[in-house]
Amino acid sequence: MSALSLSRPLRPRGTASRATPKSAAFGQIVLNEARLTWRRPVVLVAGVGAPVVLLVIFGELPSFHKATAALGGFTAFDLYVPILTVFSLAMLALLGLPLPLASYRELGVLRRLSTTPVPPSWLLTAQGIIQLGIALASLAIIFTISVTAFGAPVPKSPAGLTLALAISAVGLFPIGLTVAAVAKTANAASVIGRLAFFPLMFFAGLWLPRALMPNLLQDISNYTPLGAAVQAIQDSILQGFPPAAPLLVLAGYALVFAFLAKRFFRWE
């Protein structure tokens, strides 16, 4: 056999170097996860493409640029910027994160990984990093287009907006992890993710902005994760530092779903 490295004698026991290239291994995992995301761009299309296309369509509609008293003196477009921001975050958290994880468990990728020195949790972390990276890119595109192309107001409180976006991500991603935890297959994860996405997006105001909702719906919306996220993001853009209530609601969802995900997640 010409395979030199295969016939190279093994190092005597106990002399293996302690210096592990752990960061190199993690980098390789992130790299391959990024390749997979790029080569099967369902998540990119649904999580970035769809909200950006909607943003451009709404931006081209003249009626969306008329300030109305019913909308609190803002334009419909102003209100749809936070809604589409949350659309993107929710798509990435509810579908982008759980789909690959459920599929890896179904395929046995996580099980195979658990026979190597690398813990399977690294795959989960790598997916989290990828989804957050896509989210950052998506938010940058949405805010840039809305302000430069369609004259949306520059956020009143950049610090508040950063905080609102961060807490929204922290609140939504554990929900996706819980979906990955309870779904036995990638198909199940996809169904559960979608079933959660559309009603939650309703309360976020995708079909009827929160300002136009009857009081009861608005009250419910305040306590849903996407409703709270829209409220916090919208306030930081249009009014100033967001109030505590939506931030606390999101933090509450983060705690509950982080617990559920940890409790029910199975590696195989």
């Binding site: 295969l6 293996a16 170097s17 290239p21 980098g27 599929s103 190597t116």
Partner: peptide, 25 residues
């Protein structure tokens, strides 16, 4: 135990190789 369909042979092996201290070629 399958692997993700959209990874190339070399990419998979390079990744698994990076997990070990003294891997084969």
């Amino acid at each position: 135990g399958a692997l993700p369909a959209k990874l190339r042979v070399g990419e998979i092996l390079t990744m698994y190789r990076s997990f070990y201290r003294d891997p084969a070629d």
